[in-house]
Amino acid sequence: MNSELPTRYEIRTERASARSAPSRYGAVFLMFARNSLVRDMTFRANFIIEVISALSWMSMYLGFYILIFEYTPSIGAGTGWGKYQFFAFLATTLFVNSIVEAFFMPNTEELSELIRSGGLDFALLKPIDTQFLVSLQRVDWSSLANFLFAACLLGYSLLKIGHVPGWPQLLLYPLYVGCGVGMLYSLMITLAATSIWLGRNQTLYDFWFYITNFSRYPREIYSGTYGTPLNIAFTYILPVLLVVNVPAWLMVRPLNAEEWSLAVYALVATAACLALSRWVFGRALLSYRSASS
């Protein structure tokens, strides 16, 4: 082979596509969502059972908190988390979790299976971002049942509190729910990607569940000698406490200066989490070994 010969096979740049990249990714996602729905509707009975199961877990939890509020007027003294404020908080938790469970959970769970069986090969062959492909290829529509439940719960709670959030808050709320989803997704995909290195990782999902467990309560409950360090760690280092708290504040009360600054920090934290998880995912892919069937 003579290196001075002109190379016939030049690296081609992206074939000029009629559509821009974002719209192509949008079209692919719609196709994922559509195919998942078609699939769900083929197994309708199963779908209904899943909806019922999601709703009953929720009702059980709600029942537990109703029981707690039988014994106390608020969670924490002077924190402002009365029964209906807390229910609004719960609704926010539900919004975030139902989105994560509908769009990301089935895929990240699938990811370690794909790694184990070597099925990730196909994702790596496609001329589309691999992380996008493996994160979104299945949509679990039944998980969105809790989304509707959350909407009702939030509406009812706000009615009971008698507080009407202003326009800025109403606009910021979906943004911060989105940030919460982004942070949880980052954590999830990072954990899932590590199964390329660690192999089977059932406990990683337990870990995810346990860590996100911290996000399910108002930030104020983590106080005192042991609580404060936890509070700081889960706010600034692994920001799971910002996932639900920030959007929930927006709905139930005016934010104070510290809370506003945390709201700004939440935006930065989301961006950092997403960037970090993307880096880890990329690193992990380099070590992918592709099991033979």
Binding site: T72, P73, I75, G76, A77, L198, G199, T203, N213, F214
Partner: peptide, 28 residues
């Protein structure tokens, strides 16, 4: 790997429960 992690994590939910009840007692 599963094992070591699993054991440690069993106590994590306990932590949130302790804080929750401490806050409940502070409220009542």
């Amino acid at each position: 790997g599963d094992f070591a992690l699993g054991t440690l994590m069993r106590f994590l939910p306990l932590v949130t429960q302790v804080f929750l009840w401490s806050a409940v007692f502070a409220g009542t």
